[in-house]
Design a protein around this nucleic acid. Structure first.
Lengths: 263, 263
DNA sequence: TTAGAGCATACCCTAAGGGGAGAGTCAATA
DNA sequence: TATTGACTCTCCCCTTAGGGTATGCTCTAA
């Protein structure tokens, strides 16, 4: 019969942990003095204690250990744990690779995040622009046309509006673009305006601040980032307009998000 | 001016997280309505939100992010984080290798744990045994001799008593052993009895239940385990007697721990 | 008999939010 | 104008695996 302190020294589990394990029903002292509440353990229980300690060192949770100790199939639990550990390992690898690229890169101008974009209904319109700045006429025009077709149709709040560049390559002229904007439901279509539902999408996202002249850098950055860190592009990048000439006077305050679908 | 829900959708941070970040002083809404308490954010703050989200995805803590955002040297923090992640990775690798060996091994008879043995003062005595069972005379004899030399010297509670086999190899006869037992302080020595302090030691530990005939299996197991999982033995294994003929009648209840110093 | 060590319970703490209750606010509709 | 439903607020409890501390009881040796 060992008092808790003695058992603690033999098992190399702290007294706190032993009391905690009792509370969780994992390792119950052989007897408990009815009057004083003193816990008494048997040397025999050192084996269970060792098991518990070994399993904790493998990072099994108390509940998992309890399951194993009460006869559950240990193989299954270990196999599950191995899978979980493996995916933890992969996550860590991704983080390490990102940190490494941050440390190497002198300019940490862009921060990349992974996001999940919920599904949405959008109206969209495609066209070919002679030059980029023509988008500034085209986009409001789409909005007007859509409102004309569907006077009661409302955009989402907050708005979600983006352009995709349909040419595979960079062009200075004759640029094919598709403009989309999220709305509450589908509506009447026209030659120009169509509706579709975009599915839930995982994206890499960065924000670009300032004028559009340097936005090419942002594209280059996110593409390189995806390649360096093992993300596979799964669609056209979306250029989302958050702040621009329509609400901010100073060009420095313009804000654009670039979302690159992945997986 | 965006309400918290709108900002949440744009930043892909939950409302809960945004309120939490405000509480922690990480991301303060641009204005807070004095009467209603409503938080209002600016689109400009999306950049900070993206940064925070990116850093959280790298598993930086709130405090680390706060340090970076308020101008601390990000390189240092990232470098530290990289080191931490690397060691996490190594831990996971060890666990995976152990789980793999458990899954492969049909007999999960032994559970190995890593322990830290605190330092202790021991008396010790060496001898050559003709056969193993002679230890049953030798060990109590050491105890008596020590008590004769040092009548007031007490053993630790709980006791810590072990044998080391000094021959590098397994022998059936002429076995050189050293027996040690932890005591409270040093004392008078004799030809047979010496004192020394054993330092803090990291060990692999397993428990062997039952008679000593099969204890060889346990040694084989722990040695293979050490090799398989990259632990380097750093000394002689200690055979610690917990339960035996002196306090348990049934052989099945005898309990011995084997501790293999590592690193 | 008394001091000191050991043991008991009980409460609070961790990191990063999640979940929910109860109450106030806002905007659109009847 | 009144109401309804969607948002928002604060406050409190919950998560893991125990650690720290306070207060009081018990045991053991001098």
């Amino acid at each position: 019969m060992l008092k808790i302190g003695e058992f603690s020294k033999l098992s190399h589990l702290t007294v706190k942990a032993l009391r905690f394990y009792e509370k969780k029903g994992l390792l119950i002292p052989e007897t408990v003095d009815e009057w004083t509440g003193y816990r008494f353990y048997e040397t025999r229980q050192l084996e269970d204690a060792a098991k518990i300690k070994a399993y904790r060192q493998l990072d099994l949770s108390i509940d998992e250990i309890k399951a194993i100790m009460s006869g559950a199939d240990a193989k299954v639990i270990f196999a599950e744990k191995a899978v979980a550990l493996q995916s933890q390992r992969e996550e860590i690898d991704v983080r390490l690779s990102i940190i490494k690229s941050i440390l190497e890169d002198v300019n940490m101008k862009y921060q990349v995040t992974v996001k999940e974009i919920p599904s949405a209904i959008v109206y969209y319109a495609e066209t070919t622009l002679e030059k980029y700045s023509d988008a500034m006429q085209f986009i409001p025009m789409c909005g007007e046309e859509c409102r004309k077709l569907n006077p009661d149709l409302k955009c989402t709040n907050p708005p979600y509006e983006f352009c995709e560049y349909l040419d595979g390559e960079y062009r200075e002229t004759n640029i094919r673009i598709r403009h989309s904007e999220a709305v509450e439901k589908t509506g009447r279509e026209s030659e120009l305006i169509k509706f579709r539902e975009i599915p839930v999408t995982k994206v890499l996202s960065i924000f670009h601040k300032g004028a559009y002249e340097q936005i090419g850098e942002a594209y280059a950055f996110i593409m390189k980032y995806a390649e360096d860190n093992g993300y596979k592009p799964a669609g056209l990048a979306r250029e989302c307009y958050i702040d621009g000439i329509w609400n901010k006077e100073s060009v420095d305050e313009w804000l654009t998000e670039i979302q690159l679908p992945i997986e």
